[in-house]
Amino acid sequence: MSALVSQHGLFVLIGVIVLLQAAAGLRDRGNANRWIGALFWGLFSLPFLFGDTLVESWGPAAAYRAAGIVVVALALLAGSGRVRARGELQQRPAPAPPPTFRLLTPALLIPVVTLLCVTLLAKLKFGNIPLLDTANPTLTALGVAGVCALLAGWALTGGTPLLAVSESRRLFGAAGDALVLPQMLAMLGGVFIAAHTGDAVQHLAVSAIGPGQRLLPVVIYGLGMALFTMVMGNAFAAFPVMSAGIALPYLIQGQGAQAAPLLAIGMCCGYCGTLLTPMAANFNMVPAALLDLRDRYKVIKVQAPTALCLLAINIALIYCLAFR
């Protein structure tokens, strides 16, 4: 079942935008690192442009191997420390700003169109073909919103999509390889799963629990959710491991805890971990890069007091609400 706005099509669009970055960056003669940067972005565009096609034509093994080589090359290029733009980027003379509504309309279109995508457009079908690919709502919503806002921006300011891609190289250049980090970390999470890291964490947590205790397993479950989420960068990956390893045997079966509050609030303990870890790159590291923060851990540092406070509160909530 293919949709008019398909996942594959959006991946190709991402690939084209990234590839154009490589080309636009080459024109910045003031940037001493422009060749390394162009090579990096060029390589990063390949899995988006050709990933699906290669898996079909070469078979999974060969395609994954090729993608693996790209991953290693990206990491080595990033390790050289020369992907981020250095020196002056060529600035186009700034035009006189158009009236406020012309600039704000496209900016506000991004959330409005994403809202429409998840509410109305997701159900729209032409015959048997759905308009939007529903397998990945975030990707589709961002894609449709990005394109609509870009077209609106073109109409209202006169700036073409090509100018837009060229101007976004300041964002790409300043953020550099941090933009690839979410995917690299998701990959590492996959390696952790393949290596059965969850079993080791579970073993570590369980070794501290004796029979007949109530407070200790609650604390270990809450802390364990937070810590294992910090390792995996994702509370959903930590949840089944910690819940099957601790919550189910020691609290639900052992102490008669109510499952609904225990697990729902246990998940929130995991989110406290998400706020504290660079492994959750798309929430903590990419924003720091896009906001051009000198301290890449600043978002985590600002979140830390709230996260730690909430972790303590959530553990107390489990203790109070799950045993009644």
Binding site: A67, I110, L150, A186
Partner: peptide
């Protein structure tokens, strides 16, 4: 590495909004 990297491509969705 390659398999997991390809499977995580949707995490780059934010690229679609950077041009505008």
């Amino acid at each position: 590495f390659g398999q997991k990297f390809l499977a995580a491509r949707q995490l780059a969705a934010f690229v679609l909004v950077l041009p505008v």
